[in-house]
């Protein structure tokens, strides 16, 4: 079980997160929705150790991650696929993937991880000697997810994976999420594409200006009046 417990954080004096809590179970997809600027990516940065929280705690199976450097958080299997992909543009697809498998747990299994990623995303195999920066937007997103999978995640944080993708690719990305759940990876899915996110996840949280304002099973949230009004546009 992955737990975020009343985390507060911000940049300088401006507090962006004001006590956010959520849980992600292994083998389940949990989604986090919220408007632009709500603080979703900020929470991702805190979880991965790129940004210090002011208070609160993040833990996986009761091991506290808060305060650990990013590399130790990666070693514990909490892997982020960041917003905007952040692939390494001058390196080949293969090198990008290899860098995903740099942590201690993943290194020795890099070979089988390659197989797995290439099966999930055949286009990456076709492009393996091409530089990351020359891929199309959709291919770059697949590369970013593939690179995350190379790290052997126990908990995978996906920050807006569907942004800028065609409906077909969005469907592909979400079907990959379903595959991952079957392998008992826990997925925390941050999305603007609310209906798609709620359909693939079993539990959801709504973040507004740094507060978790709503939580519930995805079914409940899909039927919630305020969600319908603000996020589903009907």
């Amino acid at each position: 079980m992955f737990v975020v417990d009343t985390v507060a954080a911000g940049y300088g004096k401006s507090m962006v997160l004001q006590g956010v809590s959520l849980e992600v179970k292994e083998g389940e997809c949990t989604c986090l929705i919220g408007a632009n600027g709500a603080g979703k990516s900020t929470l991702m940065r805190v979880i991965s150790g790129l940004l210090r929280s002011v208070s609160g705690e993040v833990s996986i199976d009761n091991i506290v991650l808060t305060g650990l450097p990013p590399n130790e958080i990666v070693d514990l299997g909490v892997i982020q696929v960041p917003e905007g992909r952040l692939i390494f543009p001058q390196m080949t697809v293969e090198e990008n993937l290899l860098l995903g498998a740099r942590n201690h747990r993943a290194k020795s299994e890099a070979y089988s991880s390659f197989e797995k990623v290439y099966t999930l995303f055949p286009v990456l195999k076709k492009r393996k000697n091409q530089r990351g920066g020359t891929l199309s937007g959709g291919e770059q997103q697949m590369l970013a997810i593939g690179r995350g999978l190379m790290a052997k995640p126990r908990i995978l944080l996906l920050d807006e994976p569907s942004i800028g993708l065609s409906p077909l690719l969005v469907a592909e990305v979400f079907s990959v999420v379903q595959e991952l759940i079957k392998e008992s990876i826990g997925v925390l899915l941050v999305e603007q594409n609310v209906s798609a996110a709620l359909n693939v996840s079993s539990y959801g949280y709504v973040l507004e200006r740094g507060h978790s304002v709503l939580r519930g099973s995805s079914q409940e949230l899909l039927e919630d009046e305020s969600i319908k009004k603000h996020y589903l546009g009907n």
């Binding site: 990013p70 990666v74 070693d75 692939i87 543009p89 860098l99 740099r102």
Partner: peptide, 11 residues
């Protein structure tokens, strides 16, 4: 090429 991404790889 990308310091944040490098951190996220565990480098």
């Amino acid at each position: 090429q990308n310091r944040d991404a490098a951190e996220l790889m565990g480098i």
